[in-house]
Design a binder for these strands. Structure first.
Lengths: 145, 145
DNA sequence: TTCCTTGCAAAACTTTTGCATTAAA
DNA sequence: TTTAATGCAAAAGTTTTGCAAGGAA
């Protein structure tokens, strides 16, 4: 039996993306597979408009409404993560593993910070009846003067 | 000489707000003093629309354009802080001291976390040529099941 | 067939802007 | 008097929605 080759990073073929969508209970339609294939090609941060433009540029046009709706579906199923970084637009992160972010407002750069590089030695008591869903840490950067 | 009475909390009279604006190099016009007086009445989180509504309800109507423009001026001068909590709208925090936040998306509740309740024992190396401007920490909560 | 999804256009929201008018210094 | 700020309405940018048409099961 031949060994199963694993894709090197998160990159996935369209077929593999389709399978993954099905696994997650999301019907793998053509537009959805296109969007998933683009997003899951690498760990990255993309906005809805970037996705629309990038697909169109590759002759894989998907309507604006479908892109927005699909991103919401993907995010609520956990396939991707929606980030709140600035108030201009939503960003979608294909890296769903726990991690934090550096953000440079001037250039717009958004850089991952791996979990092991941050350590909390103290966190506040969670309010009664609540539990922590996630911890969002954004380290805002500016050019050193 | 009579002792100078300090306001108990952050609460400030309209007159004191006007003086504070002037100190910060912001011309204390009527609309600006109204907005500042509302915001600085207590440490709180308010959206532009809440401010417009609250002022209007008290017979102190200020136009939408002026409220939005004024909030930007206040935030960039450091009188208040603009928060990025969710992608629905901007929140303005009259507490400019360092602190973090709990957020419950379901109820919309936004609760301050004082600095001493969070301790980082490790932070990532700042990228070359950059410096840390601020650290935004949002602990997202949900109802315990 | 039946249900779900797509695409289009229009609507909904938040925020910004142009410009004539008004207020502050 | 001179400059800056206000208010209105319109515009801009992002995201959502209604609905007819198309596709999957």
């Amino acid at each position: 039996m031949l060994p199963m080759l694993q894709p090197s990073s998160t990159a996935m073929s369209a077929a593999a993306c389709g399978r993954k969508l099905a696994e997650m209970g999301i019907r793998p339609t053509v537009p959805r597979v296109r969007i998933a294939t683009l997003l899951l090609a690498a760990p990255q941060h993309l906005s809805a408009e970037q996705i629309i433009a990038s697909l169109a540029a590759n002759g894989r046009r998907v309507s604006k409404a479908t892109v927005y709706n699909t991103l919401k579906i993907f995010a609520s199923s956990g396939l991707i993560r929606q980030l709140t970084i600035d108030d201009s637009r939503a960003w979608y992160d294909s890296n769903t593993g726990a991690h934090y972010h550096f953000h440079d407002a001037e250039s717009g750069a958004l850089i991952d910070v791996p979990v092991p590089e941050v350590e909390f030695s103290r966190l506040p008591p969670t309010p009664d009846g609540m539990e922590v869903e996630s911890i969002d840490l954004v380290i805002r950067l500016r050019k050193k003067r």
